Amino acid sequence: MTEVNDAPQSPFDDLPEDAAGPDAEAIAEPNAEAALLAALDARDAEITDLKDRVLRAAAETENTRRRLERDKADTAAYAMTGFARDLLAVADNMRRAVAALPAAGESAAVDLVRAGIEATERELIAIFGRYGVTRIETEGQKLDPNRHQAMLEVPSDAHEPGSIVAELQAGYVIKDRLLRPALVSVAKAS
């Protein structure tokens, strides 16, 4: 007669003893849970570190995008800076031409030339204005080293020390940037 075993059978009962694998031994050890928790904690720390890296990379990409957009806007706004700076010499020469002409009323021909030069100068200043190029005010101002360049100091009782006495050459800004400083003489205590 065959012997009947009433005990429930496990699928692992038929396996040889070492076929259960190394995990079976690890589970049997009391430190296995601690090792598994440590591995999970290390994995969580790595995931957190990777998330942090991804967020930092995304922030850096966004900052670079904003910087490039700002640079693009600046380039569009100030693209004509070199051209405008070159045209300032033309405006200066027109002013000098008017100043070099004899006094008004001496000759009808000279008056016509004066009127033509002044009209051309007004048109040039209007064009400058359309593109954001404006003249720096100097009359009655205190010296501002960001906008004015002091060429000489003159003793003056009529002006307070550090104030502008005369403009030697006009200065200009393009929008909010300095295009050329105004060359001025500045009062000093006498």
Rank of each mutant, 00 (worst) to 15 (best):
T2I: 15
T2A: 14
V4F: 15
D6R: 14
D6C: 15
P8C: 10
P22M: 14
P22G: 14
I27S: 03
A28L: 14
E29W: 12
P30G: 08
N31M: 14
N31S: 12
A35Y: 13
A38K: 10
A38C: 10
A39D: 09
R43E: 10
D44G: 11
A45C: 09
E46L: 13
I47V: 15
I47N: 10
L50I: 10
L50Y: 11
R56A: 12
A57S: 13
A59Q: 14
E60Y: 06
E62K: 08
E62W: 07
N63T: 11
N63K: 12
R70H: 05
T75H: 05
A77L: 13
A77Y: 02
A84G: 04
A84F: 01
L87S: 02
L87A: 03
L88K: 00
A91S: 08
R95S: 08
R96C: 02
V98M: 05
A100I: 07
A104M: 06
G105D: 04
A108C: 03
A109F: 08
D111I: 00
R114K: 07
R114C: 04
R114S: 03
I117V: 05
I117Y: 00
T120D: 02
E121P: 01
E123L: 08
L124F: 04
I125F: 11
I125D: 02
I125A: 04
I127V: 13
F128H: 00
G132R: 02
R135F: 06
T138A: 00
L143K: 01
L143W: 07
D144H: 04
N146F: 15
H148A: 01
Q149T: 08
V154C: 04
V154N: 04
D157F: 10
A158M: 09
H159W: 08
H159F: 14
S163V: 09
S163A: 08
I164A: 01
V165W: 02
L168S: 02
A170S: 11
I174F: 07
D176P: 05
R180E: 00
P181N: 06
S185W: 00
